[in-house]
Design a protein around this nucleic acid. Structure first.
Lengths: 333, 333
DNA sequence: CGCCGGAAGTAAAACGTTCTACACCGAGGA
DNA sequence: TCCTCGGTGTAGAACGTTTTACTTCCGGCG
């Protein structure tokens, strides 16, 4: 409980509080002898700076927010790892928000971030409502979109081309000879799900198929369990020759349900996931998938954000778009 | 940039700042008519409370810290989901720290948490150094241990019995007839790894085997990749009849390497993991594992922590110990 | 009629930093 | 001798809340 403040340190070292603050923030400005005395006082008294006071006075904190759609998804976990690494290298703390796909929860999380006066926010939005993010920027909080293209030019964004990904995935399935296709997807309020579907339709069109023939099974969450349920539905209605899933979690669920029902993959049904999470290669039938530079997504987004915060005048907003890579494995052999 | 403060709201609503603060914190204390006027002002001006100022004055924040060993491990992800859910229900924000197994990184993270004057910290320590945690408590920050028994009586802890888990796992392997065993483990600085090994040895002793015969392969990180390397080592030195891994990530790596080398699981080698992550059931050969109440671990730890913070006088410290559950699948059939 | 007491609201002092403006000092140039 | 000028350091005013002590008002009671 012995809260030791900058004043105590100052008294102990025989200097003024301002000098202690200088030692903390611009050590160059203070003479070596005094600096050492102050540093000794700091460690002897076990002083730790009160971040809130500092934030209050300085007007900004060394904290950023990260808002993701599903922290249970290894895709986001890896993004988070990239974010955390960069942030901690530069001495920033990360406040984590999990929207779990709910716009309400996302809203609540953003509010918390705004109250904390975070320096900036990294967000994979769970819906299309730029207004909400603009409000943050109104409070002087920079926003970088992760795995989502920019809403506006004066904003950084790091994304992956989901239309191209969907197209490549389905083109691959069609090249294998599949003619009837199902798309198992999360909520179509999520942009990624929509764009991957558009890519899939484009591939069908390119192959001379009617894109309206694509059977779409929409689930409420993008989890393995939801995938299992979707697969049960497909089985009940009659299986297509190939199934494309909007992410690997869904695909693993579909795979599990199919195998359990005695359906052979890929002989009876070819299967593709998306994200190429680590576990895709290790599943019962190893899963073909679209690989994305996940960790890099997190790293680069964070670097952009912190550059925007720390060097506001030289900072140039960037819209980065990666291309996903097709990884063919047993499930589409 | 138009930072609107409590003063602006007060002026707009024709009251004093104190009254606005009352509306915010104890709405009961202010007359309905004024309250409405203030609330209208708040929403019209788009006021959002400055958390740091509030923390500074009130002496404590509505933020907790979560420090885990590996955010890439689904085990911790699920713990984090439990934490996040409870915290956000009670209006707390969560600052995430990933120690990545490094004590230095953990130290840095704890420092950041201390600077933020978080209300409390949930931590799965990556080493045995209670002093560090005691220092936090010295700053008035409550600490609850997650997946780790208490260091001291006046402290909450939520753990799972790892000795019993190791024993059950190995007893299961022995019951299948295995006589030569290997234990693939993460760093033996991690308590869980040590205790699971002790459990394993106890099971061997109980079966009349010499516990010193247990071959221990220690890896630097607890990832699938490390598991693959460990398996390569085992193959080179001659395979045992059964392999017990300190977690599922390692086990999935071992499995992948074994299958790639043409070793049959479970016919040639039986394999057990630990944690029963979702993917264990979906792997090439479904993985036997020890299930732990992961999400509950996070939930309960957070509830204990926030109870300790919000009701310090009625709060009773608890040491909760769960028992893990054996899940037998193909890999030990 | 005077007084008491509760309800509603206010003024002003904190909280621990950071930052701006200023003071001091000794050296070097005019 | 006087002035200026870096180099160091200090005093004190912020920052936006919360909170304590106080005022005001009004109804009711002796």
């Amino acid at each position: 409980m012995a809260m030791v403040s900058i004043k105590d340190v100052a008294a102990y070292a025989g200097v003024s509080p301002g000098t202690v603050s200088n030692v903390l923030n611009r050590p160059g400005k203070v003479a070596p002898a005094t600096r050492e005395r102050v540093e000794a006082a700091i460690s002897e008294l076990g002083f730790v700076r009160h971040g809130s006071a500092s934030t209050l006075r300085a007007g900004h904190s060394r904290t950023i927010g990260l808002s993701v759609i599903d922290i249970g998804n290894p895709f986001f976990t890896e993004v988070a790892a990239g974010v955390e690494d960069v942030a901690s290298e530069l001495g920033y703390a990360v406040i984590l928000g999990n929207s779990a796909g709910s716009q309400d929860k996302e809203e609540r999380n953003l509010r918390v971030l705004a109250e904390h006066r975070v320096r900036g926010v990294l967000i994979t939005p769970s819906g299309e409502d730029p207004a909400r993010l603009d409000r943050l920027r109104g409070h002087g909080i920079s926003v970088v979109l992760v795995d989502h293209p920019a809403h506006r030019p004066d904003q950084c964004a790091v994304a992956v081309d989901d239309v191209a990904g969907g197209r490549a995935a389905v083109a691959h399935l069609l090249a294998r000879g599949a003619r009837s296709l199902a798309y198992v997807t999360g909520p179509l309020t999520i942009r990624q799900c929509v764009e991957r579907r558009e890519g899939a339709k484009a591939a069908m069109r390119a192959a001379g198929l009617d894109p309206e023939e694509l059977r779409v099974a929409e689930t409420a969450t993008m989890t393995a369990r939801a995938g299992e349920q979707a697969a049960a539905g497909l089985i009940a209605e009659g299986l297509p020759e190939a199934v494309f899933c909007a992410n690997d979690l869904l695909a693993l669920g579909v795979l599990r349900a199919l195998l359990r029902s005695g359906v052979r993959v890929p002989e009876d049904v070819a299967l593709m996931g998306y994200d190429d999470i680590d576990f895709a290669a290790a599943s019962a039938v190893s899963l073909s998938s679209m690989r994305q530079p996940t960790y890099q997504l997190g790293r680069i987004a964070t670097e952009l954000l912190l550059d925007e915060c720390d060097n506001p005048d030289t900072h140039a907003h960037q819209h980065i778009m990666f291309q996903p890579e097709l990884i063919a494995r047993e499930s589409t052999q």
